[in-house]
Design a protein around this nucleic acid. Sequence first.
DNA 1: CGCAACCTGTCAGCGACTGACATCTTTGTC
DNA 2: GACAAAGATGTCAGTCGCTGACAGGTTGCG
Lengths: 213, 213
Amino acid sequence: MHVTSDGSYSVRVSVRKPGLRERTRQAVRDQLMAVAWELFVQQGYDATTVDEIAEAAGMSQRSFFRYFGSKEDVVLVKFEAVGALLAAALVERPVTEDAWTALRRAFDVIVLATERDPRYGLALLRITGQSPTLRAGRLEQQIRWQELLTPLVAERLGAPPADADPDVRPAAVTAAALACLNIANVAWMDSDGTEPLDRLVDDAMRSVQPGAF
Amino acid sequence: MHVTSDGSYSVRVSVRKPGLRERTRQAVRDQLMAVAWELFVQQGYDATTVDEIAEAAGMSQRSFFRYFGSKEDVVLVKFEAVGALLAAALVERPVTEDAWTALRRAFDVIVLATERDPRYGLALLRITGQSPTLRAGRLEQQIRWQELLTPLVAERLGAPPADADPDVRPAAVTAAALACLNIANVAWMDSDGTEPLDRLVDDAMRSVQPGAF
DNA sequence: CGCAACCTGTCAGCGACTGACATCTTTGTC
DNA sequence: GACAAAGATGTCAGTCGCTGACAGGTTGCG
C-alpha cells in the first residue's frame, strides 16, 4: 500500500497491467531457466553449479537466488503450473462422471501436452530423475497437486457413508490416481517415449480401478 | 582378498560371525541415532547441526559422516527395515488372496507396531514432517518399498491380459496401495494418534479398492 | 527534478559434505 | 609375540548451496 501526498491510499490490486518492471523480471527468470536447462542437459544437474548458471546468464550467484529460492526450483517451477491445469481440467468434467474416471480424463491435459512435444517431457523426466534432491522435489510437487485436487474429488464422492470423522477417502483416491499417473510416466520414460503414454495411463488406472478384480 | 606369503589366497566370505569390530560399529551407530533423536525432539531437525550431534556423541563431525551418509540418514534408516518387513509379510499371505487384500494385510505389520508404541510412531512422523528434506526422504524410502513389493504383487496378478510389453499393473497397484497407507498415516498423525490407524488404513484402501464404486 | 522502490554486486559467514593425510588400534597370520 | 594389513579417528582444507548486510546504481512516478 502506498500513501500519496494528499493522504489517500492507492492499493495495488493484482489486476494491474504487468508493468515494465515485472515484465523484465519475468524475462530474466525465463532466461535463467533456459540457461540452466541447457547446462543441465549438457553436463547433468549435479555437475552444474549455481555459479555456472549465474555466470552463463551474466549475473552474480547472489542475484540468481533473488530469482529462485533454490537450485532445484529452476527446474521444479515447470511443474507448478501443471497442478492448476489439472484442477481446472477436473472441475470441467461432467458431474455425472465418477471420481476415478474424471481424474483419468483430467490427466489428459498432461498426456496431450506430452504427445505434442515428447522430447521436452522426456528431457524433463530425465533431468528430474537424476538427482535424489530433484526426485524428491518432484514428489513434493505431487503432494501439492494432491492437496489441490482432493477437495474437488471430495465433492464427487459425496458425504461419507457413516460417522468417519476424518474422511480419508478423497485423499486416498486422489493419491492413488496420482500414483498411477506417476507409474505411467516412469514407464513411458523407460520406453524412451516409445509406448503411447495414453495407453500406459489407461493400463495403470484400470488395474486399480474399481471393478478390475 | 588377501595374498599370503605362500601365494595362496584367502577370500573372506560374508558368512562370518559378527566380530567385535562390526558390533562396536553398530553400537556406535545406535548411540548416534539415539543422541540425534533426542536432539531432534528437543530442538527440531533443522535447528540441530551435525556438529552438535557429533559432539554430543563424543566424536568429530567427520566421524559422524563415516557412520551415516547424510544428516537425514540418521532418521531415515528407521524406515529402511520396514520395507523388508513389509515384503516378508506379503510373501506370507496365502496365494488365494488377491493382491489388494494381501497388501492390506501386509500393512498390518506397520499398524500393529504403531499400536504397540504409538508415541514413537507419532514422534517419527512429526520429525520427518518438519523439514522438506526429510519429507522428501521419506517419500524416497517409499519408492524403495515399492520396488521391493512390486515383483511380489506381479506374481499375484498373473500374466498380463494381452500384449502389454511393459506391464504397469503391478507397479500401479503397489504404488496405489502405498499411497493409501501414506494417507492413512498422515490422517492418523493429524488426529494425534486418536483415530485407530487400523480403521484409517481400511477406509483409505476400501475407497480405492476394486468394487468400491 | 527528486524521491522512493527496486535491482545489483561484494563480502562475509553458516552448514552439509568430501578428500587427503597422519596417527593409533585391532585383527589375522606366521 | 612380532608384523603387516585393515579399520577407525581427528584435523585441515576446500566445495557447494544458501543467507544477511551493506553500498551503490537504475528506474518509475508524482
